[in-house]
């Protein structure tokens, strides 16, 4: 049996509910707005929050890009793209600058986002305070009271234990001087891109049933101490083995045969675009 799905998979009631939550999320930057989080044909924890946001946004004229850890072609990205295109018939692209909606897991693309684009981030753990406070009721209170000492203490303990802030990804950030937000597991390298972004950034957590937002031109400051500043991952003297790019987020690769370490752009479409430009020029 072939089911004729509604445009963008959802029924209109589900979209309306997400849309109402999204508008409130934009009005309160960084605050996690609860939403119903429908059952999706992919498992919770695999990007259902981002997917639901994308489906509530998407229209016939949109051009979609989906990335997973910087790659347009990994299983998660491909499956999400398939679901969206099969239920909407819209165009997909790999090129960041061409897309109107970019759904992403764990990265913000290297090419700066522009006004008119919407970045949708998939979030596994939207609660930055969950690490030390398991109760949702309690974390809601902590947010209400702007009581973030736990988040600071977590960073302080990391510095004490390891001599550095060891947040590999998902380094908490203060939004509009009010809410501490989990920026989704993007590397620290991408945190500064959230600050004064030209594009609207929406974050969706399907399993945890939360949406939140960073409107354009909003102050997003990664948590750090006066005497211990926030630092992004450094790739000093390292470059992409394929396209030669520097000052981008690199993946470390190991050559099994020679045992040598080499690096490659994490953002595959950025790398490919550079390679194409090189071969064209």
């Amino acid at each position: 049996m072939r089911i004729e799905y509604n445009f963008a998979f959802f029924d209109e009631g589900s979209k309306r509910e997400i849309r109402r939550a999204t508008l409130k999320a934009v009005a309160i930057p960084g605050y996690q707005v609860p939403f119903a989080s429908r059952e999706m044909p992919i498992a919770r924890g695999w990007g259902t929050g981002g997917l639901q946001l994308t489906l509530s946004l998407v229209g016939k004229e949109d051009i979609l890009k989906v990335i997973d850890q910087g790659s347009d072609e990994s299983v998660n990205a491909v499956n999400i793209k398939k679901l969206i295109t099969k239920t909407t018939g819209i165009k997909v692209t790999d090129e960041t600058s061409e897309a109107t909606i970019i759904q992403s897991r764990h990265r913000i693309p290297e090419i700066p986002l522009q006004a008119g684009q919407i970045l949708v981030l998939q979030v596994p753990l939207p609660e930055p305070l969950r690490y030390y406070e398991p109760s949702e009721l309690e974390t809601k209170k902590l947010h209400a009271e702007q009581e973030y000492s736990g988040a600071w203490l977590m960073l302080f303990e990391q510095i004490m234990n390891y001599g550095t802030m060891s947040t590999g990804a998902d380094h908490p950030a203060m939004v509009h001087d009010r809410y501490v937000m989990a920026p989704s597991p993007i590397p620290r390298f991408d945190n500064p891109k959230l600050n004064h972004s030209q594009a609207l950034i929406l974050l969706g957590a399907g399993r945890e049933k939360k949406v939140y937002a960073v409107p354009p031109y909003t102050r997003v400051e990664s948590l750090a101490f006066e005497d211990f500043s926030f630092e992004v991952e450094g790739f000093k003297n390292k470059y992409c083995g394929l396209c030669g790019a520097k000052e981008v987020f690199l993946d470390e690769m190991l050559d099994d045969l020679t045992g040598e370490t080499f690096y490659q752009c994490n953002d595959t479409s950025y790398c490919l675009q550079r390679l194409n430009q090189k071969s064209a020029g």
Binding site: N6, F7, A8, E12, K15, R19, T22, L23, V26, A27, S56, L57, V58, G59, K60, L200, A213, P215, P216
Partner: peptide, 20 residues
């Protein structure tokens, strides 16, 4: 069109809400 027209209206509203 309760699907497409409202989607377009929503995107415009979202645009205006995120860029006062």
């Amino acid at each position: 069109d309760l699907v497409h027209d409202l989607q377009e209206a929503y995107r415009k509203t979202l645009d205006s809400m995120s860029r006062p």
